[in-house]
Amino acid sequence: MKIGMMSFAHMHAYSYADSLKKLQHVELVGIFDDDVARGKEVAKQYQTTHYISQEDFLALDMDAVIICSENVRHKEMVRNAAKAGKHILCEKPIATNLEDAQEMIDVCEHHGVILQIAFPVRFSAPIIRLKELIDRGELGEIIAFRTTNRGQNPGGWFIEQEQSGGGAVLDHTVHMVDIMRWYLGREVTEVNAIVDSYFHGVDIDDAGILTLEFENGVIASHDASWSRFSEYPTWGDVTVEVIGSKQTVKVDAFQEHFRLFTSGSKSLTNVFYGNDMDFGLIQDFVNCIEEQRQPSISGKDGLKALQVALAAYQSSKTKTKVKL
């Protein structure tokens, strides 16, 4: 299978490229990046060809592309790739507004190509295990969720509103909303949120707390932030606690670690040794194309998660609960 990559603006591109290289039957046939210096560098790193022209890149004989551009460019790249008949894995969030997200879904449907959204948390071993327990009824009826996704400020275009479409709340809400939707099989109907900027002296938001209600009355709290500083033992966290009528189960996707103590300003580092969820995502995307099946994480999944994140901004701005 031949796969190309469109832009290395998002840092996850490196992990995805590493994952592609691990798959023996997959060839990374080229990289489009209009940041010429970055494109040349990564092409050299991954021993492939750099393309400055999107048109030339999409003319390549390849099955699929992985898009890791700035958020605001997702639509443009998805549209072009779909028209070229390439299956697509698009980094989250799917877009910066719902209209773009819907257009991306429609254009992929029209051209008969797969649009999968990159929510790698779905491929974390403990997250999958909890899904199995829920599906087997071992938690009973779900009553509430409690989730977190807190990390470091990625800087660069992430903190430029016109490039990213939003800060920490957009960046770190969509993952966990996707997980809650996946676990529950229900949609969010109400969003109440406080969004602010505390930690980095930037105009864009770096902290938010969301209280959600799902269509079946399940309630949830979510903490999204870029509150972790570089000396913190780990990049951040991804946690979900599910309060069920039979039992409550909590999962920490990065809990599989040992503690490394060294001298210096960062004396403690958590060294993660759990499964590589990015690799799981890429493997699933490749399998999806090979098996010609529907993607496990659809464009609609991306849109629904985006809808909640955008509603959080609206709720905070208007100081009201937003109904979806």
Binding site: E141, I143, A144, N192, I194, I209, T211, G217, V218, I219, A220, S221, I243, S245, T248
Partner: peptide, 14 residues
Amino acid sequence: HSRGGLDPQHVIVT
């Protein structure tokens, strides 16, 4: 507040 009639009861305060 979580739905009535379901145990355990759960409350989220923002």
